[in-house]
Design a protein around this nucleic acid. Sequence first.
DNA 1: CGCCGAGTTGAACTGAATCAAGAAACGTGG
DNA 2: CCACGTTTCTTGATTCAGTTCAACTCGGCG
Lengths: 188, 188
Amino acid sequence: MSQIVRHKISKYIALSDSDWAIIQPKWEEVSFTKGEFITREGQIEDYFYIVKNGVQRLYFNKEENEVCLGFSYNHSWSGGYESFITRKPSRMAIQALSNSQLFRISHPDLQKIYANCPIMERWGRLILEELLTMRATREMEMMSFTSEERYNMLLKRSKHLLQLVPQKHIASYLGMTPETFSRLRAKS
Amino acid sequence: MSQIVRHKISKYIALSDSDWAIIQPKWEEVSFTKGEFITREGQIEDYFYIVKNGVQRLYFNKEENEVCLGFSYNHSWSGGYESFITRKPSRMAIQALSNSQLFRISHPDLQKIYANCPIMERWGRLILEELLTMRATREMEMMSFTSEERYNMLLKRSKHLLQLVPQKHIASYLGMTPETFSRLRAKS
DNA sequence: CGCCGAGTTGAACTGAATCAAGAAACGTGG
DNA sequence: CCACGTTTCTTGATTCAGTTCAACTCGGCG
C-alpha cells in the first residue's frame, strides 16, 4: 500500500514499523470514473477514504435540488463521515467529479485497529478534532457573511477550485444559486 | 467529585475504579451567576465543561451583533471547543444565561489523562464523533430549510428552550432576526 | 413610580431567488 | 475531426422572504 497513506497518518502520530504492519494490509486502493458515485444517499457508509488523486464532491438532496457540503482532493480525507460514524443510512452522497483514485479502510477494520493499536485511537481523535474545527469555521462563515463576502473568501482561499469543479457546485457550496455566483464573478 | 461526571463518561466507555481514581481529582466544580462569562472572545479556552445545572449560550460576534451557535444545559458538554482544540484565541464566547454550576477539566490535565489512561483517548474520540454529527445535522438544516421550517423544527425538537432562554437568542441560533421570530410565533 | 430591555407589529426596503432566454463549452458518435 | 445534442454559464426582468427601521406595549426591578 502506498506511502501516501503512511505519510498522511504520520502527520498526526508517530507510527512504528510494527504499527504500520498491522494497518497497512487493511487499506485498499479503488478507482472511480468521472460522474461515478462513491457513496449513495441511503446507503450506510462502510469506508473512510484518503484521496490519491481526482476531485470529489460531498452533497445532499433537498427536494429537487442538491446542496454541496464540500469537496475532497489532493491527499485530503473523504467519505460520508456522518453515516460512517452513526452507522445509519447516509443523507450525504459522494460523487467523483473527475476520474479518481482513493485509498480506503472499512469500518470493521478500523474498529479492529482501534482495538489492537492504541496509538491509532489517538489518530482518530485528532482527525475528528480537525474535521470539527473545519466545520465550526464553515458554520460561523455561513451564518455571518453575505453571498458576496463568501464568494470573495473562496477566491482568496481556494481559487484553484474554479478550475477543478463546475461553478454550479461551488455556488451551491457557498449557499447561493448559480445565477448569483455568475453575477458575482462578472463584478470582479 | 460528583457522580454526574462519572456517570456521563460511563455512557461512552467502561470506566474501572482505578481509571476513575486517576480522572476524578482532575475535575473541579465552578459556579457562574446569570450574565457572567464562562469564556470570553479572544481568550484561549483552557477548560472542557460538563453542565451540572443552568443554561449557557455559545455565540460569536460579527461586527455589531452576536450570532448564537448553540446552548448547553442539563448534563451536556460545554466550552469553546474550537479554541480548546486549536489552542488559538477563541472566536466564540460562552455566557451563563442563568445561575450555573459546571464541572470542568483543564486542557493540560486532559492531555495527561489521554497519555496515562488509553481508554480515555477513546472517550475523546467518541465525544468528538458526537459533536461532529450534531454539527453536520445543523449545517444541513441551516443550508436547506427556510426560516419557517427551522422555527417549526425547533418547536418540535426543543420547545423547552423557549422557557429557558430569551427569544432573541433563539432567533439568532436559528439564523433570523428577533422580528422574524416573533412573526413566526404569532402565526401558530 | 419610572426606567429599560424584551417582545410585538407595521411599513418600506433589499439581497438573492426565480423565471426565462440565449450563448458558450463539452463530449459523443459518426 | 466535425456535427449535434446536452449541459453549463450568462444576462435580464420580476418576485419574494426576510431585514431594517420605527413606534408602541409589556413586565420586571431599582
